[in-house]
Amino acid sequence: MKYTSKDSIMPSSTNIPDDWFEWEQSDKAQAEKVARPSLSYWNDAWKRLRKNKLAMTGLVFLIILIFLAIFGPILSPYEVNKSDLPNQYQEPSASHWFGTDSHGRDVFTRTWFGARISLFVGLMAALIDVSIGIIYGGIAGYKGGRTDNVMMRIIEILYGLPYLLVVILLLVVLGPSLTTIIVALTVTGWVGMARIVRGQVLQIKNYEFVLASRSFGTKTSRIIRRNLLPNSMGPIIVQMTLTVPSAIFAEAFLSFLGLGIQSPYASWGTMANDSLGAILSGNWWTLFFPAFFISFTMFAFNVLGDGLQDALDPKLRK
């Protein structure tokens, strides 16, 4: 086929002024200029996270929640554990924003105290999981070979243990308290985190930039600090955001079995369980507020975790 000349679309060459046909020193700086400004990994991730409306909703909710957990009780004139039986089951009103419970205690005040405990349980469990997981998974992944093999067998065995059954068993013996609940939740909870860290370390260890820095004789500790940790942070953070809600859920579940935080302290879980019956007698608010905050907190952490997963995934970087 003839490669037809396209004078119809292209400007005719005869219209072009002659003086345009002069050598021009092409601007090398311009040629080298990268098309778009390059962003650092974290800047880029933050930028993408900010575009995710759902994840941002979750993040804002959590910030408000933490603020209220700290300052909420101060705003309220009521004491958290003071019974006021004549005032039991008051509907939400100007004096009791969230109403009162079966002991006449102010649900608003108790909700923020509950937030402190539920969030504390969730965050501590996540923090401990991460600490053990990073050390264990990091060693297994970095050492590799036999060490890795043995360590992974141990993980495989622990992974088979039914998580909540073990937690229940531990709490039956240790007796439920804030400390024992966190201990019980983390005894087998770190296994998942360790697996993720190991996988990341194994993968990154073989990247060329790590090999390069090894070949320069960089110290192991420096490689771990400068290369391995920052580059495996993404999945670790995501896993952490997902550990918090599952720990909050586990605590609520344990409350249901009578193995949660014991009164007079209240987590959202204990508050909700104490009120499961009350809802049938029409006192919906005693269940609604703790249930709403459990659910919305789990929602917030889940969407934030999803958002972070997308934002931190280097594959999605364009």
Binding site: S5, K6, D7, M10, P11, S12, S13, F21, E22, E24
Partner: peptide
Amino acid sequence: PFAMKVCNKVYPVQ
């Protein structure tokens, strides 16, 4: 390396 003024302004004719 042989860029001229015209190259930046008009797409070259076939």
